[in-house]
Design a protein around this nucleic acid. Structure first.
Length: 624
RNA sequence: GCCGAUGUGGCUCAGUGGUAGAGCACUCGAUUCGUAAUCGAGCGGUCGCGGGUUCAAAUCCCGCCAUCGGCUCCA
């Protein structure tokens, strides 16, 4: 039961500055944002405004939606508040007193937050401004945001406060007005709960210095430049067609060629690692999904069943029940175990329209799924085998840094204490043998067993979850799976689900972003483009291309008849790794003038010399 | 699904009530050229889809679809 996980986990931005300072800057920015919004739009209710990995956000409740134009206005007001150098003062307050004050302000969300603070925790609020007025005044209620105080503010008497645990900066002017920016406005549910009111969230980013802000914005630009949706279109790799429906992927010839290379590599790696390959149907009788439990537990992600000859059929959201059925086609001896069955299995899952995202989150995708059926004392070895295979495969695709998570038994789960212990120990043992550090997510496992998840780090430091290894105590039980043990008694095998790429679509998207479309030679859909300088060299160019093709290289001849400069530009724009220029000189000398995308001009090479260099790059899975 | 934005030729975008535009791509012609864009001409869009308002809709209104930024979900 391998599920697809979306979204890169952006690495904790590790600024060179003091994280404490940064945290205060961001938190105070959130307050300044809220203050600015309530100054400009007094009817707005405040909710929460935490810091994030790159900045901060604040959720507001108001009738009319905020527009991008409002953001500009809000940002201007924030700069004014910052430049006003308003002091930020913490006050420890009495619960009942602050309660009364919040009620007076008609801030229902703040009241809810107050009531959720444990009784033994101190309650603090932070004032922004109000300094003059605070002096010598004991009754802070003077400074509530009421119609009166708003008038005061318009007269320059800046004063605002928020219930908050802090910490904050000492003054608004400690925020560098050139080191923050508002980024976007979006909907967000109160307390992340769909049934609760939808609020409007303003996202911002904030740093210590303008340079850091610039670095962040540059990184954001870089991510945009690498966006697989954009590259997928520009390089003509794939498309998602409105006429066909969202989340359904069309692999174009170049993308399909790459997928073929990936699949061929994958099949060989699996056969070499002792797996057998399976093909199973895309639909099956609904009863199968009732037996597996998916119809009860996974229904909201499944397409509706279809009726054929009074039978209900279900488009498969997972491959596992099929592999179980294949296992059950005959009785197995303990001597056969472990059985390792892999399949590039295409599954269809209903995803809500709003969550679809390029190749990363789709409705139809192909998992590089496999199931291992084994004896209890084989689990650790099998997991280790999976870890080794995972490392081999991922590193061949250029991913060598991982974050590993071990998820243990959740409160609601099936299986005995004994078997959970055994499986969890086996996972830990495998990780230790492998020598991989890991983060334990206590209680984060699936209800049917513990798991290991592996996130890969891409070229710009983002983490993506791809691989997952899950022990399953549930399906063997539900399907009453058995093997015959040495003593002749029937026993239940342990089942392991695992995927290395996760989904081919998603992995392809990650790969595209990792390489920014500049794929290593072994994966490039077109490896070489031959460019004739003039029509006189066309025949020779075609002959060279033909020879290289016969040797298995992916080669094209530029037939545009354009000047060399234009042909080179076109090849560069298409990110073709190698261009072979053929002019009069090359025909005379029987050579090729080679220019590569990664290393520039290599000068004159014979065809054999080019082949050697390419072969080396392909074998090492490196750029040429 | 929810909130907001967007949808104009293959691509990037202009056009905000009055005869659909540009650049690139593509086709054709000229040029036969040496490492990131030769020149010229041409083809190509019932302006996402469906309804409505109006003498007149790419433009205003309603519904739907898709995409984008989020939320939520990711047995």
């Amino acid at each position: 039961m391998i599920s697809q996980v979306n979204r890169p986990f952006t690495e904790k931005s590790a600024p060179k500055s003091n994280p404490q300072t940064l945290l205060r800057i961001r938190h105070t920015c959130a307050h300044v944002l809220a203050m600015a919004v309530q100054t400009l739009f007094p009817e707005t209710k405040v909710t929460i405004g935490p810091w994030t990995e790159t900045g901060f956000y604040y959720d507001f409740d108001r009738q009319t939606p905020l527009t991008p134009d409002d953001l500009t206005q809000i940002e201007t007001e924030m700069r004014r508040i910052i430049n006003a150098n308003l002091p930020i003062i913490q006050e420890v307050v009495d619960r009942s007193q602050i309660r009364a004050e919040i009620e007076q302000l008609h801030e229902p969300y703040k009241l809810e937050i107050l009531d959720s603070i444990p009784a033994d925790e101190p309650i603090t609020r932070y004032f922004i401004g109000c300094a003059d007025a605070l002096q010598g005044v004991t009754d802070a209620s003077l400074f509530h945001i009421t119609a009166d105080t708003l008038t005061q503010k318009q007269m320059g008497k800046d004063c605002w406060w928020d219930l908050c645990a802090g910490p904050h900066l000492n003054s608004t002017s400690d925020i560098n007005p050139e080191a923050f920016a508002l980024e976007s406005v979006a909907g967000a549910y109160w307390r992340g709960d769909e049934t609760k009111p939808q609020l409007q969230r303003i996202y911002g980013t904030a740093w210590e210095t303008p340079d850091q802000l610039q670095a962040y914005l540059t990184q954001k630009e870089e991510a945009k430049r690498r966006d697989h949706r954009k590259l997928g279109q520009d390089l003509d790799l794939f498309s998602i067609q409105e006429d066909a429906g969202g989340g359904l992927v069309f692999w174009h010839p170049k993308g399909a060629r790459m997928r073929l290379l990936i699949e061929d590599y994958w099949r060989k790696a699996h056969l070499d690692a002792g797996y057998e390959l399976l093909y199973t149907p895309h639909i099956a009788n609904l009863d199968l999904w009732k037996t597996s439990g998916h119809f009860d537990f996974y229904r909201e992600n499944m397409f509706d069943p279809m009726e054929i000859e009074a039978q209900h059929y279900q488009l498969k959201p997972m491959n596992c029940p099929f592999h179980v059925l294949a296992y059950q086609s005959h009785l197995h001896s303990y001597r056969e175990l472990p059985i390792r069955w892999a399949e590039l299995g295409t599954v269809y899952r209903y995803e809500r329209s709003g969550v679809l995202h390029g190749l990363m989150r789709v409705r139809g995708f192909t998992q590089d799924d496999a199931h291992i059926f084994c004896l209890p004392d084989q689990v650790a070895d099998e997991i280790l085998g999976v870890l080794n295979l995972t490392e081999t495969i991922l590193s061949d695709f250029g991913f060598t840094q991982y974050e590993v998570n071990l998820s243990t038994r959740p409160a609601k789960s099936v299986g005995t204490d004994n078997i959970w212990q055994l499986a969890t120990d086996a996972l830990v043992e495998a990780l230790n043998t492998k020598g991989w550090d890991y983060i334990t997510d206590e209680g984060g496992g699936a209800f049917y067993g513990p798991k290991i998840d592996i996130k890969i780090k891409d070229a710009i430091g983002r983490l993506w979850q791809c691989s997952t290894i899950q022990v399953d105590f549930n399906l063997p039980e539900r399907f009453d799976m058995e093997y015959v043990a040495a003593d002749g008694l029937r026993q239940r095998p342990i089942m392991i689900h695992r995927a290395i790429f996760g989904s081919l679509e998603r992995f392809f998207g990650i790969l595209t972003e990792h390489y920014a479309g500049d794929f290593p030679l072994w994966l490039a859909p077109v490896q070489v483009r031959v460019l004739p300088v003039s029509d006189d060299q066309r025949a020779y160019a075609t002959a060279i291309a033909q020879q290289l093709k016969q040797l298995g290289y992916r080669v094209e001849v530029d037939s545009s008849g354009e000047r060399l400069g234009k042909q080179i530009r076109t090849a560069e724009v298409e990110k073709i790794p190698v261009v072979a220029v053929i002019g009069k000189r090359e025909v005379e000398n029987q050579t090729l003038s080679i220019r590569t995308r990664q290393s520039g001009e290599l000068g004159s090479l014979t065809r054999l010399e080019l082949q050697e260099r390419m072969q080396q790059a392909i074998e090492n899975r490196q750029p040429i």
